[in-house]
C-alpha cells in the first residue's frame, strides 16, 4: 500500500506546510519569550509611569470634606476616586477610575501618580505564552508543541547524502544538543 509513496518528498512537503502554519505561533512564543526572559529587568506586560508632584499643606487638605475633588483639580486629573486605602497614618493610596494610583505622603506633601498601561501587542502575546487563557488554548499550544517536534525531526531528513545530517553537518545537530547539556552541567551540578 505504501510502496509507491515517496517518503522523502512527503516529508519535505509536510515540513514546508506545517512550517508555514507554525510561523504565526512561533513568532508569538519567540517574541514574548524574549520579553518574559528579562522580567527581572523590566515589566513585560505593563508600562508603569511615575509622576511626582508636590501639593502644599497636603495634611490640612486631607481633612477637608471636598479633599478628593480638590486634589484631583490640583493634579489636573480628569477622573474619579473609586477606592482609598490608608497604608500608614501618613500614607494614603487613592485609586482612580483611569487606572491611576495616587500615593500621598502627608509628611513630605508629595503625591506620586502611578499610571499603569498594558503594553500594546506584547501584553497579548505574553497572555498566550503564559497560558493565562487556559481552556482551549492549552490544547492548541500542545498541538503546536507536537508540530514543533515534527519540524525538528523531519528537518533531519530534508536532504539526502553527504550534505544531509549524516555528513559533516551532523556536528551542527550535536552542537544543538551539547549547548543545553553544557548549561545543565555548569549550572545544575
Amino acid at each position: 500500500m505504501f510502496k509507491n509513496v515517496n517518503w522523502f518528498k512527503l516529508n519535505r512537503s509536510l515540513h514546508r506546510d506545517i512550517g508555514y502554519f507554525c510561523v504565526g505561533v512561533t513568532l508569538i512564543f519567540a517574541i514574548s519569550g524574549i520579553a518574559l526572559n528579562h522580567v527581572e529587568d523590566w515589566n513585560p506586560n505593563y508600562q508603569v509611569i511615575h509622576n511626582t508632584q508636590t501639593i502644599p499643606a497636603l495634611k490640612q487638605m486631607v481633612e477637608r470634606d471636598s479633599f478628593e475633588t480638590d486634589l484631583l483639580i490640583s493634579l489636573q486629573l480628569n477622573s474619579k476616586i473609586k477606592a482609598r486605602f490608608w497604608q500608614s497614618p501618613s500614607q494614603l493610596k487613592l485609586f482612580t477610575t483611569n487606572e491611576q494610583t495616587l500615593m500621598l505622603n502627608l509628611d513630605s506633601n508629595q503625591v506620586i501618580i502611578e499610571q499603569i498601561k498594558p503594553r500594546p501587542i506584547l501584553r497579548s502575546l505574553n497572555f498566550l505564552h503564559l497560558n493565562e487563557a487556559r481552556k482551549a488554548w492549552t490544547y492548541f499550544s500542545d498541538l503546536y508543541a507536537v508540530m514543533l517536534i515534527f519540524l525538528a525531526l523531519s528537518a533531519l531528513f530534508m536532504i539526502k547524502g553527504k550534505k544531509g545530517v549524516w555528513g559533516p553537518r551532523a556536528i551542527i545537530v550535536v552542537a544543538g544538543f551539547a549547548a543545553p547539556l553544557a548549561f545543565i552541567f555548569y549550572y545544575a551540578s
Partner: peptide, 11 residues
C-alpha cells in the same frame, strides 16, 4: 493565576 495590575482599586 495571573492577577492583572489594572485591577488595583477594585474589590
Amino acid at each position: 493565576m495571573v492577577f492583572p495590575m489594572t485591577t488595583m482599586g477594585k474589590t
